[in-house]
Design a protein around this nucleic acid. Structure first.
Lengths: 183, 183
DNA sequence: GAACTATGTTTGAAAAATCTAACTATCACC
DNA sequence: GGTGATAGTTAGATTTTTCAAACATAGTTC
């Protein structure tokens, strides 16, 4: 049995998830992960990072000795990777399906990634896979949606206008392959 | 100019938004809004509600005198209504498009409603309107998606199988009308 | 209207996430 | 190898949200 203040089963907070994701990403980008870089990435001050590092360390999500380089543990890596995956999928949905620009989509995804359960995320994936694997329907459909957004809502015009559109979608779909496939 | 600890321009916290939404909904369901009911609805204890009521009152979002009935101010009503609208739209997307069951969709929507900006929410609305206003594309497309989810991913089968399906979608679309139209 | 039950509030404490100011360690360079 | 600049930490405070325990009020019923 676990002792009273066992911390291991308490769920992670959104903030913790954000830090783990940031550390995961920085680890891929640079040789070493610095407090300063985490702070910059997350828009907080350095003392805030230090204090969070202590929490993450207490939960065995990172290896951390003060003034030394820090590393994700296996457990921390798993979480970081999972949050990164969520982020990527949701951002993909926002950019490729809803056609929201990258910067905004990235910000929204960062907030949404803590709100969406695993099973809902799977539905998002299926949804995007569907459009990518059923191109005759999916691609046509995305074209329709853009048409609709740009030229109004009359049902009759949907079908007519759709014929004229065929370009620009391969790019969106290509991005999506990556996203859906990463699972 | 505003004095130093002016509170009026500080953004509302997600928790505050949740309370305002709960009060808004309870106000529509019952004659009076009780502390006990808010607590139950949000899964917190009564003292937590009392303390939040004080904060909301300080921000002029509710009219509140202890032991008396509480009411949303104009400002509080606007927020409550807006959060309710977001909730409704996102839940509609989750149930009608991703086909997630109501209970789960409702929970997820409750978390997502704080994460999504106004402009992103508008895209969700356009997206659902599109499916509802372009039924020749939208309805077909939803059928395809269900097919895809239930029977696998071979592109060839998408078109073939789609022909067999035509029922069960009117319901989903009907719900959506309500959602999209509420704006 | 006294007593009992519901409901609501106060008090005091906790955890989480953040900040500023002040301190300390590390690194690089001359 | 001393000295400055950069990076990191500690200390202490604040805000937000929550709770349990104790207290207070309101409502109901005999």
């Amino acid at each position: 049995m676990q002792n009273k203040d066992d911390i291991s089963k308490k769920p992670l907070t959104p903030a913790m998830e954000d830090y783990l994701e940031a550390i995961f990403n920085l680890g891929k980008e640079k040789k070493v992960v610095r407090v300063k870089d985490i702070a910059k990435r997350l828009g907080v001050k350095m003392p805030t990072v230090t204090s969070m590092l202590k929490s993450l360390s207490k939960r065995k999500l990172i290896d951390y000795e003060k003034y030394e380089y820090l590393e994700l543990t296996k457990k921390g890596l798993d979480v970081g990777k999972e949050i990164h995956r969520r982020h990527h999928i949701l951002r993909g949905f926002l950019t490729d399906i809803l056609n929201i620009d990258f910067k905004n989509a990235d910000e929204e995804a960062c907030k949404m990634e803590h709100a969406v359960s695993a099973s809902t995320l799977d539905r998002f994936i299926e949804f995007m896979e569907f459009i990518q694997f059923c191109p005759r329907v999916g691609l046509e459909w995305l074209k329709y949606f853009d048409e609709y957004r740009l030229h109004g809502q009359e049902p009759d015009k949907c079908l007519a206008r759709m014929k004229e559109f065929a370009k620009g979608f391969r790019v969106r779909i290509k991005t999506m392959k990556e996203v859906g496939g990463e699972k």
